[in-house]
């Protein structure tokens, strides 16, 4: 059965589910994933996991800052589903590299 659901709320992470694929977008231009909003990000990711998705696609084109709490959550979810990160800036790539997390994600 084809599933498709959208969620868009101003200032919040948005998500979309299509078959077994889960798509996450960041709230706005110059977004952060940090200790302040990481639980909101985790709740969205859990939604996907609870629906049994196999792949989570995250568009990071609007991401300007991620701290250890955000990296920690990404790592946790990479153990539950395949995570594909899109539009990763060189800056964020470097952070993933120095924290040895680059191999846990597909980067496109």
């Amino acid at each position: 059965m084809k599933q498709k659901k959208d969620n868009k709320e101003k200032g919040a992470f948005s998500w979309k589910i299509k078959k077994k694929e889960f798509y996450v977008d960041l709230p706005h231009e110059k977004s952060s994933i940090d200790i302040k909003n990481v639980s909101e990000f985790a709740d969205i990711m859990k939604k996907g996991i609870s629906k049994g998705v196999e792949t989570i696609h995250i568009d990071l084109s609007n991401l300007v800052f991620i701290d250890t709490s955000g990296l920690g959550k990404l790592l946790s979810f990479s153990k539950m589903a395949r995570i594909i990160l899109y539009n990763v800036s060189e800056e964020i790539k470097k952070v993933l590299e120095i924290t040895h997390l680059l191999p846990f994600f597909n980067i496109k």
Binding site: T68, L71, G72, K73, L75, S76, V95, T99, H100
Partner: peptide, 9 residues
């Protein structure tokens, strides 16, 4: 671990 990345960064 999910933690322990701060000082590494």
């Amino acid at each position: 671990q999910d933690h322990g990345k701060g000082l590494l960064i």
